[in-house]
């Protein structure tokens, strides 16, 4: 099975985020950039399928040169190849622009399954996966928590969490999946894996290499723009009660009734 995993490089969620003084974006200096959390789960899913059914796992990232570090993480986990699409003309692309570039790159590769993260932890968009499925004309299942391959029928059977239930879907291949964290536990790269990944060449492609017309991506094609970032409203500590349980319970009931008005 030939699997393509889409990988984005994002700020480490463990670290604080500093907003530039003019609010135009985040201050990237000294920021630790890593593979998007859900893309680790996507890569793990790809590797497990390859181990079971053979084939290859190819990673694709769209972004600046530094995106190669995130791709190397995936190579160290065991992916076979990685491709970076990088081009200054991509600056200011919206999520559909990114999806167009990924679609152009993936069209050049054999693919039975494309796997994306459920969302990227910087933008929180959850757009690229389903948009890419549409552009490639593929069926999809998003935010999946379970995955089985039905080898006889050329389909995958997936579970996805929906409000108040679970959907069990059968999706014919080729298809695109986006993955939830409960799908698997990503492996840590092994030391030999890390050494091997260091030596691997990451193929870099430009928009011209892919035959993508500049006006279809980049800032001019974008249908929305991030104009400002502010810290979230700060919450104040309220009252603290350190008394016996009876008193505490009476306080909560009074709060729910008089302030929150839910009783």
């Amino acid at each position: 099975m030939n699997i393509v995993v889409c990988v984005k490089q994002v700020p480490d969620t463990e670290a604080p985020i500093r907003i530039r003084p003019d609010g135009s974006g985040i201050d990237e200096s000294g920021l630790n950039l890593v593979m998007n959390y859900y893309d680790e789960h996507a890569t793990e899913a790809g590797l497990r399928l390859k181990e079971q059914f053979g084939g290859s796992v190819t990673l694709i990232g769209v972004g600046p040169e530094r995106t190669k570090e995130a791709l190397r993480t995936g190579l160290a986990m065991g992916a076979d190849e990685a491709i970076l699409v990088s081009d200054v003309a991509l600056l200011g692309s919206d999520h559909l622009g990114t999806a167009r570039v990924l679609a152009a790159a993936i069209k050049t590769l054999p693919h039975d399954l494309i796997i994306c993260g459920k969302l990227s932890t910087d933008d929180n968009a959850a757009i690229v996966g389903p948009a890419l499925a549409e552009l490639l004309g593929l069926p999809q299942a998003t935010a999946i928590a379970q995955l089985e391959v039905d080898t006889s029928g050329g389909t995958v059977v997936v579970h996805r969490e929906v409000e108040g239930g679970v959907e069990v879907l059968e999706v014919p291949l080729p298809a695109l999946l986006t993955v939830e964290r409960s799908l698997n536990e990503p492996r840590y790269p092994s030391l030999p894996g890390i050494m091997k990944a260091k030596r691997k060449e990451i193929k870099t492609m430009s928009l011209a290499d892919l035959g993508v017309e500049v006006p279809s991506v980049g800032a001019t094609a974008a249908k929305s723009a991030l104009t400002r970032l502010v810290p979230p409203p700060k919450r104040q500590a309220g009252r603290m009660i350190e008394e016996d349980a009876e008193k505490a319970v009476a306080e909560i009931v009074a709060f729910l009734k008089n302030e929150a008005k839910v009783l």
Partner: peptide, 10 residues
Amino acid sequence: MYTRKTIGTV
């Protein structure tokens, strides 16, 4: 955005 560490205006 950024795991709710910021609020973006779009």
